[in-house]
């Protein structure tokens, strides 16, 4: 197999360059990450993030043949013989496949990603029906890999002003939680031409999410709630 990989080390390189690698896959190489690890054994200067290798930690998001995904759950068998790897688009590159995610996390933090309920807690758990809990499915599973936000043209244009699909999915995760009491403040905070309304339902986020989540639907529900409270 042939790999063409984006390489850039600001410590020594004037500008980024694409570098070719050849690798004969072994039967134990199931996923793209397995191949990357073996490439790193050939060339230890190849830099990328990785941790759980099972698609739950969100470390190894990258652009694989033009599409964002996680290397650890991208099967080699599903890839063509020539694979081109680039860092996630739209974020500053630290080195090789490693991007600076500061802006992404800043947007996540901006939606107050924590349960707000200032009533004194009961002695035991707060009650929630199974149906109410089901409302959180498809939301809480987000792994913050940034595949979605960095596939979103609106986020590319306004990463400082538009919350982006990952942050908005989490905003709705708390709005949808019957235990959270800050729905009004959360909606107020998002009622803004940029923070929420830069979403033009392009749906790249839905297309690339490695956990099969649907940020566009969550964004739609937030918009719906805004309309409902306006009338």
């Amino acid at each position: 197999m042939r790999f063409t990989i984006y390489r850039y080390d600001p410590d020594k390189d004037q500008r980024p360059a694409m570098k070719d690698y050849e690798l004969a896959p072994e039967t134990t190489d199931r996923m793209l990450l397995d191949a990357l690890i073996r490439l790193k054994e050939q060339d230890d200067s190849l830099a990328f993030r990785r941790s759980c290798r099972e698609g739950v930690c969100g470390s190894d998001a990258m652009n694989i043949n033009g599409r964002n995904g996680l290397a650890c759950i991208t099967k080699i068998a599903d890839l063509p013989q020539h694979v081109t790897l680039r860092p996630l688009p739209g974020l500053p590159v630290v080195r090789d496949l490693i991007v600076d995610m500061t802006q992404f996390f800043k947007q996540y933090h901006s939606i107050k990603p924590y349960l707000i309920n200032d009533e004194p807690p009961p002695e035991r758990e707060r009650l929630q029906s199974p149906e109410e809990r089901d409302e959180l499915n498809g939301l809480y599973e987000c792994i913050l890999c940034a595949c979605c936000s960095t596939a979103c043209p609106s986020f590319w244009w306004n990463p400082d002003k538009f919350v982006g699909p990952a942050g908005l999915l989490q905003a709705y995760r708390f709005i949808a939680d019957t235990r959270d009491q800050a729905t009004r403040e959360r909606l107020d905070d998002l009622e803004d031409p940029y923070r929420l309304f830069r979403c033009h339902t392009i749906m790249n986020c839905v297309d690339v999410c490695p956990k099969n989540l649907n940020p566009t639907r969550a964004i739609g529900k937030i918009k719906e709630m805004m309309v409902r409270r306006a009338v």
Partner: peptide, 11 residues
């Protein structure tokens, strides 16, 4: 649970 952890629920 009070912090917001999304535990599954009984009826």
């Amino acid at each position: 649970e009070h912090m917001g952890m999304p535990f599954d629920r009984l009826d």
